[in-house]
Simulated assay, not measured.
Amino acid sequence: MIHIRFSNNHYGGEIDLSGTPGDLRNIGQSILELFEAQDVQVCIPANEVDPAPYDSCLNLLLIRKSDCPVKVMVAGSSLKIEGTPEKLKVFADWFNFGDSTESGYHNHFDYYEGNEWVDPASVSLIISVQ
């Protein structure tokens, strides 16, 4: 099961989304299946754990189709990620970790100047292997 930790202490916040390599691949697969099923969104529950060194835990991951670049945000107690189908399909690959990936390995998904794939208002996301 995945864990989502959140701190809102700098630059609009930071989120750590973590799980085993299989858990993370399942998220990527869920994103791809979202388009095959023609659904509007997919909901993935998260386990609550000790948030340290972050401030709190979020209990749900919502991935939703929209007409904007990929945007990562916090909505209540949920991590919400939205974007165009084309951009979300590319984003799904960020969750492709092999079974031998060591715990602690992670990717940063952030906006940078000139990046048209990520919304400038997007919260910094770290995708971590447990």
Rank of each mutant, 00 (worst) to 15 (best):
G83A: 03
A121M: 15
S77F: 07
A92M: 13
H108K: 14
F97V: 08
V118K: 03
D93R: 15
Y111T: 03
K87T: 00
S100I: 05
E116C: 03
D99K: 10
H106L: 12
G76I: 14
K89A: 11
W117K: 14
P85L: 02
K89T: 10
K87Q: 02
H108Y: 12
E113Y: 07
N107S: 10
G83H: 00
V90L: 15
L88H: 02
Y112D: 08
N96G: 05
D99T: 07
A75V: 13
S122P: 12
V123L: 12
S103W: 02
S122H: 09
T101D: 04
A75H: 15
F109Y: 09
N96T: 06
E82D: 10
D110E: 04
N96M: 08
L88D: 00
K87S: 00
N115A: 11
H108F: 10
S77A: 07
Y112L: 09
S103C: 12
K87M: 00
N96K: 14
A92L: 13
F109T: 01
A75L: 14
A92I: 10
E113M: 07
E116W: 00
G104L: 08
G83Q: 02
G76H: 15
A92R: 08
D119E: 08
A75N: 14
K89G: 07
E102V: 05
F91E: 00
S122F: 04
F95W: 05
N115W: 05
Y111P: 02
S122K: 08
P120R: 15
G104K: 14
D119W: 08
L88S: 00
S100L: 04
G104R: 14
A75R: 15
P120M: 13
Y111F: 15
N115M: 03
K87E: 00
V90C: 12
G98Y: 10
P120N: 12
L88W: 01
H106Y: 13
P85W: 01
G76C: 15
G114D: 04
D119F: 06
G114W: 03
A75D: 14
T101N: 05
E82V: 08
F97R: 00
S78V: 02
F109G: 00
N115T: 01
Y112A: 11
K80G: 05
E102D: 01
Y105I: 06
G104Y: 07
G98W: 07
A92G: 09
D99S: 13
D119G: 11
G114F: 02
V118T: 13
K87W: 00
